[in-house]
Nucleic acid binder design. Structure first.
Lengths: 187, 187
DNA sequence: ATAATATCTAAACAATCGTTTAGTTTGGTT
DNA sequence: AACCAAACTAAACGATTGTTTAGATATTAT
C-alpha cells in the first residue's frame, strides 16, 4: 500500500525521554527533540500529536523502566529491608552527582505549576499512589501494626522516596547513602 | 533633578518572587512579570537588567524570608528538637497541598538542567550548604559524636529537609507531618 | 517658569516557540 | 508497470519569547 516508517516509535521516545529527563519539559524545545530523536517535526506530530503527547509517552517510557525495580520489590519477601533495597536500586538506576538528571517523575512534579496539563498531573499522582501502595503491601506482615500506623509508615516511606529522588539531583552519592541508612535505621 | 520612580524595587521583586514560586522560571514570561509586578518592561530592565536578574533577586528575596526561621533555629538551644521545630516552621511557612507552591529553592534545583545559569546554581548550592552547616552547629553538643557521624547526621537532615520541601508540593499536610515525626523518631 | 533628566508608555526588534501545510519521495498492491 | 497512500523534506505559519529603542511625561533644581 504505502511507504514504511523509517523509525521505531518506542526507540525515538526513549531518546525524547532522556532529553526531557536531562532538561525538563519547558526547556526542551521541538527543535531539540527533532535533533535528538533523529526525525522530522512532521514525523513527531504524526506519531505523537503534540509536544505534550511526546512528553506523556516519555513519562510512560520512564515508568516502564522503573517498573523493573518495582517488580523486583513486589516479588521479594515482605519487610522494610526489601524497601531499603529498592531505595538503593533506585540510586543505582539514576546515577547521580551535582545537578544530575535525578528522577523524571519528581523533576516534573517540581517543575510544573498548578495550572499545568491535567493529564500530566494525573500521571504523577497516580504513580506516586501506586508506589505507596506497593510499599504498604510490603510492610503488611502478619505479626504487627494497626492500619493507621501502617498508613503512617507508608506515608513516611513514599515521601522519603520522593525526597531522595529529588535530592539525587544535588547531593553526592555518599550523602544519599547516608540518608538511606538513617531513614531505615529505626524502622 | 528628575522624575521619581513610581515603584519600590523590593516590593515589585516580592511579587515577581511569588510568580516564579508559583510557576517556575521557564513558564514565567516577561509578559506575566509585567502584569504581576505592575510595571512596564522598560522599568523591569532598568532595575534588574534581565529576566535572569529578576529571578536572582527573587531568590534573594525568598532566602531573606527563610532567614527568619533560620535565625530562630540558630538562637534556640542546641539539639535535634530545635531542628525538628524548624521542619515544622518550614511547613507552616509554605502552606501546602497537592501541587502547591512548595519551596522556591528546591523547585528551582529540580527544574534547571546541567547547563543552566552558573550564578543560579551557585545560589542553590551555597544556600543548601549554609543550612547544612546550621544543622551541624545545632547538633554540636559537648557530650557526644565523632566528627564523621556528625557529618552523616547533618547530611541526613539536610537531605530530609530538601526532600520535605520538594514533597510539600504533592503531599497533604498530614502525610508531611507523618514524615517529620518518623524522621526525628530515633535520632 | 524653564531647563534638565530620569521614568514612563508603547511600539518594534530579531529569534524562537509549537504547529501546520505543500510538495516530493518511497514502497507495497493490483 | 502503474497507481495510490503513507512518510518523508522543507518551508512557512502566527504567536510569543526576551530585549531594545524612540518619544512622551513628569519631577526636581535653578
Amino acid at each position: 500500500m504505502a511507504r514504511k516508517k523509517a523509525y521505531i516509535e518506542s526507540e525515538v521516545i526513549e531518546k525524547a525521554m532522556n532529553l526531557f529527563w536531562r532538561n525538563g519539559y519547558e526547556t526542551t524545545s521541538m527543535q531539540m527533540l527533532e535533533k535528538e530523536m533523529g526525525i522530522n517535526k512532521f514525523s513527531i506530530y504524526a506519531s505523537f500529536g503534540s509536544k505534550n503527547g511526546v512528553f506523556l509517552q516519555s513519562l510512560e517510557c520512564y515508568k516502564a523502566k522503573l517498573n523493573g525495580l518495582l517488580t523486583k520489590l513486589k516479588e521479594s519477601e515482605k519487610g522494610v529491608t526489601s524497601i531499603k533495597t529498592y531505595f538503593y536500586d533506585f540510586l543505582e538506576f539514576s546515577k547521580n552527582n551535582e545537578f544530575g538528571k535525578g528522577c523524571l517523575i519528581t523533576n516534573t512534579a517540581n517543575e510544573i505549576g498548578e495550572d499545568a496539563d491535567a493529564e500530566i498531573k494525573k500521571v504523577l499522582t497516580d504513580f506516586t499512589n501506586e508506589v505507596r501502595d506497593i510499599f504498604k503491601e510490603s510492610l503488611q506482615i502478619e505479626s504487627s501494626l494497626s492500619n493507621t500506623s501502617l498508613n503512617q509508615k507508608a506515608d513516611y516511606l513514599i515521601i522519603a522516596m520522593f525526597g531522595l529522588a529529588s535530592a539525587s539531583r544535588m547531593f553526592r552519592p555518599a550523602q544519599l547513602k547516608s540518608y538511606i541508612e538513617n531513614t531505615f535505621d529505626n524502622l
